[in-house]
Amino acid sequence: MAKAALYFITGGVRSGKSRFAEQTAQEWAIEQHATLHYLACGRVFDAEMAERVNRHQEDREKSPIPWKTWEFPTDIERIVDGINQDSVVLLDCLTTLVDNELFTQQKPLEAEFLEETFIKIMNGIEEIQRHAACLIIVSNEVIQEPIFHNEFLHTYAKMLGLLHQAIVERADAAYMVEWGIPVMKKGGTPI
């Protein structure tokens, strides 16, 4: 079975990365006659989060092809029952998924658990790739500031950094969105 194309899109807060990811997904879907699936990892627990979610929902409602939304804060591979080889999946976003996987179980952040979580997330990505035509992963730029003195930030940045490295390595294309402008870091032809 062919593996889905993999795109990695990152950027700062409000950089336009989600919008670019949605456009990429829509263009892919139009060209390949595919269906659109939105894999939301965020949990809505306050008004600010609701505002963010609504904004992205409104964007997706303007899409010429309808989106199907799936909410999986953890265990993203659960989406495979609802998709097929004609599906484009947009995962938004990796950082929230990491948050949820790391902090919902209330386990101490020990090496073994971190390793398990890393493998679990990468396996989830691979499982989706096996069942879809295209997977687009949105994430946030990891902080570039003095983190070494803070054990928690250190662990978190390491996990996210290693995941980003592993995903970029496997990706067909990788972009960093700067102020609405996608900068291609890896890949052949721009979309």
Binding site: E141, V142, Q144, I147, F148, A157, K158, G161, H164, Q165
Partner: peptide
Amino acid sequence: GGAYNGKAKW
């Protein structure tokens, strides 16, 4: 580059 970006590996 930023921390944990794979500098040493590169």
